[in-house]
Design a protein around this nucleic acid. Structure first.
Length: 244
DNA sequence: ACATTAAATTCGA
DNA sequence: TCGAATTTAATGT
């Protein structure tokens, strides 16, 4: 049997909160919704923001834990998976820098309904449920940002169902890339997507080799350009329009 | 699975 | 502190 090329998810849940620290200026600059707030709102939000560094493979939140934070990715890449406890993963979504998540569960003060795992060494920010609601109660731009996230994510999950059902690996990679590269939902991502072929493999559920082939196929179509340690998206719509 | 190449890190002056 | 040497990581076949 070949060496298992999955990240080790067996480590236990460390006290993330204990490791958290306030955000630096440059980290604050990477939080899209912060710019839309009024001065006093921004002050309160900034005071509440906690930043934590998570190691590769580390779990940020787990199904069933009570929601205490609204999370956003500053740097790195997270994998959101909604997998049944035994067996087949249902849905994967990548959360690149600039993406914020958990609003659904935080809004309803429920428990998390998915696992969040760091696909690479990442920097994650979070604000408390209390501050989240405080902002929801008074800032319209903030509401707009959250609503946009919700709406886009809904579309993503619907789209993910289709992707899971497609057999053609090239198309699966294309569509997954299109999902990752979503300017509205992830303003932090430029046209350059820093993701290794290995990571894409985890995300899409294919071997690294097959991903490599698929990427070259997409490059031949002029949709992307392969670069070391990542790739450049040249034609997001073209990726999205790939059909089996 | 293996060979090649890019990038990150170490180390010596 | 610079850059050459070494190690690690990613790619391509």
């Amino acid at each position: 049997m070949a060496t298992r090329d999955e990240p080790d998810i067996s480590r236990s849940h460390p006290p993330l909160v204990a490791r958290a620290r306030p955000a630096t200026e440059s980290e604050l600059a990477d939080i899209p919704w912060l710019k839309t707030l009024l001065t006093d709102e921004r002050e309160r939000a900034v005071a509440d923001i906690k930043v934590v560094h998570v190691a590769i493979g580390e779990l940020l939140c787990r199904v069933g834990r009570p929601a205490t934070f609204w999370f956003g990715v500053i740097d790195g890449l997270l994998k959101m998976s909604n997998d049944s406890s035994r067996g087949v993963p249902i849905t994967f979504t990548g959360v690149p820098p600039g993406g914020w998540f958990g609003e659904g569960t935080v809004l309803k003060r429920e428990v998390y309904r998915y696992n969040i795992q760091a696909l690479r060494k990442s920097v994650v920010a979070g604000i408390s449920v209390e501050t989240f609601h405080w902002l929801i109660d008074r800032s319209i731009p903030f509401n707009r940002f959250v609503m946009q996230q919700l709406n886009e994510r809904l579309g993503q999950f619907i789209g993910a169902r289709e992707i899971d059902r497609m057999n053609d690996p090239d198309v699966r990679v294309a569509r997954s890339l299109a999902a990752l590269f979503h300017p509205t939902l992830y303003p932090g991502v430029g046209s350059l997507l820093r993701i290794t072929q290995q990571e894409l493999g985890y995300l899409v559920g294919l071997s690294r080799q097959r991903v490599n082939e698929a990427l070259h196929a997409l490059q031949r179509l002029g949709l992307i350009r392969i670069e070391y340690g990542g790739l450049r998206v040249l034609d997001p719509d073209g990726l999205r329009r790939q059909v089996e």
